[in-house]
Design a protein around this nucleic acid. Structure first.
Lengths: 221, 221
DNA sequence: CCTTCAGGTTAACGACCACTAACGCCGCTG
DNA sequence: CAGCGGCGTTAGTGGTCGTTAACCTGAAGG
């Protein structure tokens, strides 16, 4: 149905398709899928409007390829890291550390895709959405497995929720893109790493949930 | 609810406006601002299409009122909690605990608004967007102040980034709305509280960033 | 009873937008 | 040179959607 692989499919897909995908991702992340017209996408790569249809079946196809690609890369990378860290004799702590590092790399390198990942899923056709969700679920499972092994005292539902919460933490990178943010990529990565490890560490802490003691009852707004 | 006589003009707008706003928030969060038509919003409250224009100047006005309302409530609530916790003799730890609890309440009670908060900001008119951003900045400042006081060893940029990251963590609630998630609201709140405190605690930990030791060098993705 | 007004209704309009049609240019290959 | 296929162009088309116009209804109020 879709355009056949014109050339070598995998290694060095040349220029235009990737260029279009990158700009489309950026624009979709900035203004939302429905907020961007095909003319804008075309203009962003130097061609105009319907010229895009020589490379993609439609606007939906671009989004689908983006979201499926993200999910695949996330899951494949996570899987690889689990295998590598395990095969080199690392325990669950090492595996989790590698997963965190990998996710941070992804979040820092592909902010636009991170944004799209959980924003425009509803715009996909049913089949594509199912595929993305399946990949997401498998990726989450990698984390739940290792976190559950690290914190046997926590129930699976709790671990799963914690994993999602830490995803939210790591995926916050688009919000800190301000001007004079952190010194650099390395510092940001280090900070996120510490925060993520700190969050997970609280699962087995002896410390209770609320150290604030009295706290202020909210009641009325 | 019926305490106010129906003739009071301005202050207590009765039911319809609020009803429309609630449904609009839900729909916008589900399918995005541009993904929802006015007919759908109208249908959700039992009227059809252009009837909404008796209550709002337009679709944009609904979104603006939603986003400004969220930001105002967030900031006002945070401010109140800082004052209350401080006046009752609480130190920075107590203040931070109260801020966290308040944000969790908000995240659990108004998932749709949390989603809109950082998703549809770009759709606002310039003046409205400025107002929302200003309120957001002031809210962040509340957190940065207290977290900075709790962790004097961290630079301001680092603290700011950590605050944003913890916001991402706490705002992850829309992603755990699955079927058999956590037992209940209380358990979810307790978990989020622990995770947030754990993340902040890592700022002053003696523990270095990467406890995984050797870890797997990622290089290419 | 007649007026007024808030809160609806349906019909229509205008803008926008994804997509298609028809055509042009250019570097191949034979 | 002929022809062809990849890649781009502009003009047009159908559909959707926000918004407005014109009209209706029912309750309050003198």
């Amino acid at each position: 149905m879709n355009d056949a692989p014109t050339r070598t499919p995998a290694p060095a897909a040349p220029t235009r398709r990737e260029q279009i995908l990158r700009e489309a991702a950026r624009l979709f992340a900035e203004r939302g899928f429905h907020g961007v017209g095909v003319d804008e996408i075309g203009a962003a790569v130097g061609i105009s409007g319907p010229g895009l249809y020589r490379h993609f079946a439609g606007k939906d196809a671009m989004l689908a390829e983006l979201l499926i690609g993200i999910s695949e890369r996330l899951f494949a990378g996570g899987q690889r890291r689990v295998i590598d860290a395990t095969s080199t004799g690392g325990g669950p702590a090492a595996v989790l550390g590698s997963l965190i590092d990998g996710h941070i790399d992804f979040a820092l390198d592909d902010r636009a895709l991170i944004t799209l990942h959980d924003r425009e899923l509803g715009q996909l056709r049913d089949s594509d959405r199912k595929q993305v969700r399946s990949l997401q679920r498998q990726y989450v499972e990698l984390w739940v497995d290792v976190v559950g092994r690290l914190h046997p005292g926590s129930g699976e539902a709790e671990v799963r929720a914690a994993v999602h919460a830490v995803f939210g933490l790591l995926n916050s990178t688009p919000h800190l893109g301000r001007p004079g943010a952190l010194p650099g990529r390395t510092a940001t990565a280090a900070l996120l790493r510490r925060l993520a490890h700190g969050a997970f560490a609280s699962l087995s802490d002896g410390a209770p949930a609320g150290p604030a003691g009295p706290s202020v009852k909210p009641s009325a707004g």
